[in-house]
């Protein structure tokens, strides 16, 4: 079989204790027998570990943060593309997705493909909209309520039983057992992320996750359920295991077929003692633990590349149950000249 020869650019090389998915995505592509890729890293910071890891990247370019605006961002991508033509970009960080979705037509014109959700798919799954989302697509979600001021805190007890979860719009979630604790968390979160605060029913159970890939036409191309075995103090999985859980797969298929989701996604659910599943979050991209799915037989990064390039992809039907991942840290050694090269010229050849 002839291999697909491609230049693929990947972001999210921050393989730290709160890892970006870049390196796991690259490992999936490197493992593929169907793709022969030259892989370009797009890095925001000159100490992103992925840049320095052996056998991962062929070349790295520094790019400006999305916060510098689409114009500056695209100007840099175009500059790189001129030197080093790119077939496909896989953005892996939440903060970039908006920019890539907006820039999609421009990238297309340049001949650069992406495979990201539509703006509508992206916007409607925001945490603050979860209840509407659940109703619209017929999935169970925890009851929630929005706080826009301290005066709303008294209203919580009319609708909820303590404990409740107190969440920020984008990040942070705390358990509160009484109104005093809500006040506390409310102050902490608003100082950092502003309003609104989301109060969510606390669902007792086990957190389970699915990594999935939708083809944009309603078909689930890949889906692997997992349970975290060990969690860091930042709440990130340090170890996990694939599960045989047909209900999770059914919910995933249902959601993807209803939303016609395009691209990678991670579903976070709580499974209760009564075997009910509550969706608590939908992440609009491949998660950092995707290599577990690759190891379990579903090479999601490979499938995503093929979908993006317009190739036919046969949906995966099975995966190995009981496959585990264990993250570990490892001190790479480097030299100041690599750092110099990156800092002064904004690019480095591996």
């Amino acid at each position: 079989m002839k291999k697909l020869k491609l230049t693929i650019a990947v972001t999210g090389l921050n393989n730290t204790d709160n890892p970006g998915p870049g390196i796991p995505v690259i490992r999936g592509i490197r493992d593929s027998k169907e793709i022969e890729a030259r892989i370009i890293g797009l890095a925001y910071e000159n100490l992103e570990p992925g840049i320095y890891m052996p056998q991962m990247l062929d070349k790295t370019y520094m790019i400006p943060y999305p916060s510098s605006g689409i114009e500056a961002y695209m100007e840099r991508i175009e500059e790189i593309h001129k030197k080093d033509p790119i077939n496909l970009i896989i953005p892996n960080l939440d903060a970039e997705l908006y920019t890539f979705m907006k820039a999609e037509p421009r990238l297309k014109e340049l001949g650069i493909r992406t495979f990201v959700p539509t703006l509508e798919q992206f916007e409607e799954r925001h945490k603050a909209n979860l209840e509407t989302y659940g109703k619209k697509y017929g999935i169970k979600v925890p009851k929630s309520m929005i706080l826009t001021g301290h005066h709303d805190i008294q209203k919580i007890q009319d609708e909820f039983e303590y404990p409740v979860l107190v969440k920020g719009k984008f990040y942070d979630a705390y358990i509160a057992y009484n109104p005093e604790q809500v006040v506390n968390h409310y102050n902490k979160i608003t100082a950092k992320w502003g309003l609104p605060i989301i109060i969510q029913e606390f669902i007792k159970g086990t957190e389970v996750n699915v990594v999935a890939l939708g083809d944009g036409k309603g078909n689930t191309v890949a889906a692997v359920p997992m349970r975290k075995l060990f969690i860091t103090d930042k709440g990130k999985a340090w170890s996990g295991i694939t599960l045989a859980d047909e209900e999770m797969i059914r919910i995933t298929n249902h959601l993807i077929s209803k939303t016609k989701w395009r691209g990678g996604m991670e579903l976070e659910m709580i499974k209760t003692n009564k075997n009910e599943y509550y969706m608590i979050e939908i992440n609009p991209r491949i998660p950092a633990w995707v290599y577990l799915a690759v190891g379990a037989g579903q090479n999601i990064p490979e499938a995503l590349v093929k979908l993006a390039m317009g190739e036919k992809v046969k949906p995966f039907e099975t995966y190995k149950v009981g496959k585990m991942f264990i993250r570990y840290s490892w001190d790479l050694l480097g030299n100041i000249d690599e750092f110099e090269q990156l800092s002064i010229f904004g690019e480095i050849e591996k």
């Binding site: 910071e45 000159n46 100490l47 520094m62 990156l342 800092s343 002064i344």
Partner: peptide
């Protein structure tokens, strides 16, 4: 000063 984390220019000058 080159911040370890954030590159501010990498030879590109102002935008």
């Amino acid at each position: 000063h080159i911040n370890a984390g954030v590159p501010d220019k990498f030879g590109r000058g102002t935008t």
